[in-house]
Amino acid sequence: MNQAERLELEACLRRASEILYNNSDTDSLETLADIEITVRNQILEYVSPQIALFLSPKKPKPDAGKPEP
């Protein structure tokens, strides 16, 4: 990753963090554990599905050694 891409990624992540924070129940963010749970839940709900799309842009091929059901 070059410097320009790294800076662009950081800017996007800052903006994503702002959006997630703005859509959190900030009254319940009293401890580090509360923050960790909130962040983990948001990552699972919003971030991970998008990363999964990036990681598998094509339909996976069936294993050659395994018979199809």
Rank of each mutant, 00 (worst) to 15 (best):
P49E: 13
K66S: 12
K58M: 10
L44I: 10
P57C: 03
I37Y: 12
A11P: 00
P67T: 05
E18Q: 03
T26D: 08
D27L: 09
P60Q: 06
L29E: 08
R15P: 00
D63G: 04
Y46G: 02
E10K: 04
P69F: 15
E8N: 13
M1F: 04
M1I: 02
S48T: 13
S17T: 09
P60S: 06
V47H: 01
A4Y: 02
K66R: 11
Y46R: 02
C12S: 09
D34M: 00
P69S: 15
I19T: 14
L44E: 03
A64K: 02
N2P: 00
P67H: 07
D27W: 01
A16G: 10
L29P: 01
E36K: 05
E45S: 05
N2H: 01
E45T: 02
T38E: 07
E18G: 03
A64R: 02
M1N: 07
P69E: 06
E45A: 06
A4W: 03
L55K: 15
E10S: 12
R15N: 11
P49A: 14
T26R: 14
K58L: 06
P69A: 08
S56N: 06
T31Y: 03
R40E: 14
K61T: 10
R14C: 14
G65E: 06
K66Y: 03
P62W: 04
I37N: 03
P60G: 07
E8Y: 04
R6I: 12
L55E: 15
A11M: 10
R40N: 04
A64W: 11
G65Y: 11
E10Q: 06
S24I: 08
K61C: 05
L53S: 06
A4M: 03
D63H: 14
S56W: 15
L32N: 12
E36R: 11
S24P: 00
I35W: 10
E10C: 07
L32K: 13
E8H: 12
S28E: 09
I43G: 01
V39P: 00
A16M: 11
N41T: 13
M1W: 08
S48P: 03
A52I: 07
C12M: 08
S24D: 01
E18M: 09
Y46F: 09
N23T: 09
P67R: 00
L29N: 12
I43D: 02
N23R: 08
Q3S: 10
V47L: 14
P60Y: 01
E45N: 12
E18S: 15
K66A: 08
I35G: 03
C12A: 08
K59M: 12
P62C: 11
A4N: 07
P60V: 00
N23P: 00
P69Q: 13
M1L: 02
E45K: 14
N2E: 00
T26Q: 07
